[in-house]
Each structure stands twice: as C-alpha cells, then as structure tokens.
C-alpha cells in the first residue's frame, strides 16, 4: 500500500510544489492538501480541502483518509507577508492543532515532516561561522518570526517524545532562492541597487528551491527522522551575491538601520524585517553535513543558487513575466478527478 500524505499550505508556494513532486511519485497513493487558499499550481490528483489554519477538521480527515504522512510546509518564515498576530496563529497555533490531530488516539499518522527555517539560529556577532543542528543560538530570539518558529520546534520536540512510533523529521532551511519564489532577500536582490549595511559584508548561504523539494522527498523516501540543516555548500559575501546578480549596492547606516529602512517600507520600495537586517550585518552559515551523511546530494551550491536566480531575474527583465497564471476552478477540478465521464489511466500494477 502506498503512502497517504497530507500536505499543509497547499495554496502556498511550498505546499503546491511539494504536492506536485509527490504526484510524480507512484509510491504515493493519496495526497490531500489543506489550505484556506486555493492551489496556485495545477495539480492532477491531489485532493484540495479548504481549511483554515486552525485545522479543526484535520482529525476527521486523518481518520477518514487513513493519512499516514503529514508534511507541514505551512510555516510562515517571511514576516513581511502578514501581521505578527496572524503569523502566530498560522505558525504556533496551527502547528499545535496539527500535531494534536496527528497524535490523537487511533491516529494512523506514522511520519511527520516539518519545514522550518535557519532563522531559529538567529544572526549575531557571537555566532559560530557554521551552526550545527545541536548548536544553541547565541542570544534569545528578538524577532516575532524567530520566536514563533522556536515555539513550533518546541511543540514538535514534545510531539516526537510523546509519539515514539512516529518518525518526526524537522528540516531547517537556509535562505531559499529560486526563480519563482519571493522572499525578503529575493526582493532585495531584484531592486536596481541592492541594499547593504555600511561597513558590513557578511557571508550568506543559500539553498535552491529544487534542493528544498528534493530534500523533503528524500527524507520521506529514506525515512530519516531527526533534525537536519538544509543549505547549499559554501558561504559567499553579500557584495559577491550582488555582483553575481549584476547589481551595485546602496548602503544603509550601520546604526539604527531599522529606523533608516522605515521610509523604504512606507514608499513600498523594499521591506527589510529585523531578522533580515541582522543577516545583512552578521550573516549565517549552517552546517549541511548531517543530511549529506544521510545520503542526500545537493544540486546547487550557495553560489550556484544565486547564479541561477540571477539568470531567471535577467530573463524576466527581458521577456517579462510570461508564467501562465493557473487558476483553480473547483468544478473543473472535481470533474477531472471524479466524473465517470473522464477516462482515467489505470495506475501501473
């Protein structure tokens, strides 16, 4: 019997991409995606269920669909996307409800994979160049997104302890770069001049979107429980990142940087949240060797991820955004999935 997977945040970039990748995997029998927003990418056999982040119907779905694998991609790591209250609801309360349902009596869930972020390490002058999975952060978290992700990880640790029969994998991703993904850093790199903090040229690490998806599939396939950093090899200075993108830098003052960037936010030029400003001052490296030892191979180095991102930005600058905009239409999707009129290929035996 194949896997029966539940993906959270199906309407988000990651949920949609993960579901697409799972659809290609014949060993995955059922994919159910939750979100309060409709999927933004075309999906063939994923069942979309509209649900808010409180996941109130989750326990019922798990029971009804005999879900054995939960992939929790719906964690907000870009704090510019919403208010901190909303982020708290999605990250902390959402995860709490999700894990409560997954750990309910009689639950069929045996695998939980959570997509967290290297934001949990912070970025401070005291930091080591490379954070290993067990390295504690240097200072208590200051920003809301860091706090909420740490709380999420705390719940997950408790869950893993209370449910030893469940394989729990927590992946901490470095700064993700990809042609289609928008993050505070990608927005900064798409500006005509790249913001930098005067007097600082910290080293950055990146991971390509493909490697993110591949790593999630990898931990599913190989059933590796535990905590893993996911990041491309190598660190490169922010000035070099800008150079690869073919951009010059403009400099923010080294002190009161947050105050100085406020007008940029008001003028809608670019919003640099406090965790990004910390990163622009001190940078962060995470040690990716534990996942490599488990057998994972990266397709992109940090610099490789930046170069591919730069090429995509250049292409978009020339030919414009020609991505065919997919729109989810409930009736159409239901027709293709369930109408007896549609001739479906039998899955290969």
């Amino acid at each position: 019997m194949g896997r029966r997977v539940l993906v959270t945040g199906l309407g988000t970039f990651w949920g949609g991409r993960v579901a697409q990748a799972l659809e290609r995997d014949p060993s995955v029998e059922v994919i159910v995606g939750l979100d309060s927003y409709e999927p933004s990418v075309p999906l063939e056999r994923t069942e979309y269920v509209r649900a808010d982040e409180s996941y109130s119907i989750l326990a019922r779905i798990v029971r009804a669909a005999h879900i054995d694998t939960v992939i929790h991609t719906f964690l907000v790591v870009d704090s510019t996307m919403m208010s901190s209250r909303k982020m708290h609801e999605i990250n902390v309360i959402g995860t709490m409800n999700l894990l409560a349902a997954a750990g309910a009596a009689g639950s069929t869930v045996r695998t939980v994979v959570v997509k967290s972020s290297s934001l949990v390490y912070g970025a401070q002058p005291e930091d080591p160049v490379w954070f290993r999975e067990q390295t504690p952060r240097s200072k208590p978290p200051r920003t809301r997104v860091e706090q909420s992700l740490l709380e999420v990880e705390g719940y997950l640790r408790d869950f893993a302890e209370d449910n030893p029969h469940v394989l729990v994998t927590l992946l901490r991703f470095s700064n993700v770069l990809g042609p289609e993904l928008t993050t505070p850093l990608s927005r900064a790199l798409e500006l005509p001049l790249v913001p930098a903090v005067l007097g600082f040229d910290p080293r950055f690490q990146f991971v390509a979107t493909e490697d993110v998806i591949r790593s999630i599939l990898f931990v599913l396939d190989h059933e590796v429980p535990g905590l893993y950093n996911v990041a491309g090899d190598g660190l490169l200075p922010w000035s070099e990142v800008a150079a690869i993108c073919g951009k010059r830098q403009f400099f923010l003052p080294p002190y009161l940087t947050g105050v100085a960037t406020a007008p940029m936010k008001t003028l809608r030029i670019c919003e640099l949240p406090p965790e990004t400003i910390d990163l622009l001052k001190y940078g962060r490296g995470i040690d990716n060797r534990r996942l490599k030892r488990a057998g994972f191979r990266y397709e992109f180095t940090s610099a490789g991820a930046v170069e591919r991102f730069a090429q995509a930005v250049r292409l978009r600058g020339t030919v414009g955004d020609h991505e065919p905009q997919y729109r989810y239409q409930r009736d159409v999707e239901a027709f293709f999935r369930h109408s007896p009129a549609v001739v479906r290929e039998e899955p290969a035996p």
Binding site: V129, I244, V306
Partner: peptide, 19 residues
C-alpha cells in the same frame, strides 16, 4: 554520470568560509 548534476560554483571573490 552521477545522478545529481555537477554543482556549479560561479564564485567571483576569494573570500573563504571564514571571511
């Protein structure tokens, strides 16, 4: 040929991991 594509490394500076 390896399963994974050979990673490219388009570095522009000689700054190592330690800075």
């Amino acid at each position: 040929t390896d399963d994974a594509a050979v990673p490219t490394d388009p570095r522009r500076s000689d700054v190592d991991e330690w800075g």
